[in-house]
Design a protein around this nucleic acid. Structure first.
Lengths: 201, 201
DNA sequence: GTCTATATCGCGATAGAC
DNA sequence: GTCTATCGCGATATAGAC
């Protein structure tokens, strides 16, 4: 369920949802689930409504468009990645944080795996989506770089030798983190929590 | 164009194609191109026919189904990966082969990037596709393992320390090779040949 | 082999009742 | 806010002429 990820970084106690807000959320959950299974293009708004347990028409009260649904899901993803990678002056703490963040990134990548998968097509089809994506990832890579430099400075990690850079390492880690669980799934090894833990070290 | 990949492993001189065969090939090329751009579900058979320069009806003379087209593309992919990873007794030769194969894998992954991207959805939607996929990848991983063990035995490579194994390393390399170019593309750094070379070392 | 024409279906999106 | 009904469109797949 969505809760696996949902809980990790939200405020401890959630404000009671308005009725409208709850429906909106159920639509997004349903859409995410179906997108992951079949891909965005193969999922009709009708199917989303059915999965969410509402009428087709009602869906259009909350979202003007399928694209709007995808954009809303993107916002959720961005939210999940916010405010990690603040480097600490304590080396052990940073190492723990590194592990935790890679785990978290894997979890998010899994729950929203349709997004990484269809990334290029999605970005091509929606300029607004692309704008947000580029901006966020620019920022994220910068954060990772500062964090990585700190790790190197603290002797927790060796800098990769030329011609490879810290940025390259970041990219490689990002690629692995975002696709590892999907890979397991494709090999018919269902991605369970313990398996996730086992994947990180 | 497709030739980038097409040429790499085929017999030196291609037999002259029958008219039927040529149309079939043009359909597959068109489909691959469009699938990569927009994703399989978003591409109609009409669009494929148009891109291939034939009529919608004609397409159904050559393929009974969109699924059949995808299956045919899968066969091409499998063909491109056949007969690499035969370990040699010469260490330098193996190292060169490792590089060459990673490059080649990247190239294929790029030309057929829709396939990796939509993998889970595709496998879920087509039992036959899944059967071929599992079988081929089982075999492939075995080949890589024997190759990797040879590299270790020849002192070209260190075995990763526990709890990571040679198989894990293979998976990580596979993930990177299959997604690296797509990643570059998503960052708006178009994947050119030189960039490919630069990516491998 | 290839074309044009067409039947059938399901999707996206809106209108209007409750 | 939510539903049902419906319009218009485009997609798949087939039929039949050339």
């Amino acid at each position: 369920m969505s809760s696996t990820v949902e809980d990790s970084r939200q405020e401890g106690r959630r404000a009671p949802m308005a009725k409208s807000e709850r429906t909106r959320t159920r639509i997004l959950d349903a859409a995410r689930e179906l997108f992951n299974e079949r891909g965005t293009a193969a999922v009709s708004t009708n199917a989303i409504a059915a999965e969410a347990g509402i009428s087709p028409g009602n869906l259009y009260y909350h979202f003007s468009d399928k694209r709007q649904i995808i954009r809303a899901l993107q916002e959720q993803i961005v939210g999940h990645h916010e405010n990690r990678w603040e480097p600490s002056s304590d080396a052990a703490e940073n190492l723990a944080k590194l592990r935790e963040n890679v785990m978290a990134a894997m979890g998010v990548a899994w729950e929203y795996r349709f997004f990484e998968r269809e990334l290029l097509a999605l970005l091509r089809a929606d300029e607004e989506l692309r704008a947000v994506y580029t901006e966020v990832h620019e920022r994220r890579l910068g954060e990772w770089l500062r964090f990585g430099e700190q790790l190197v400075a603290q002797g927790v990690m060796r800098e990769p030798g030329p011609p490879r850079s810290l940025a390259d390492l970041g990219v490689a880690m990002w690629l692995i983190a975002s696709h590892w669980l999907s890979f397991l799934e494709s090999r018919e090894m269902p991605a369970t929590r313990p398996r996730l833990r086992g994947s990180v070290i």
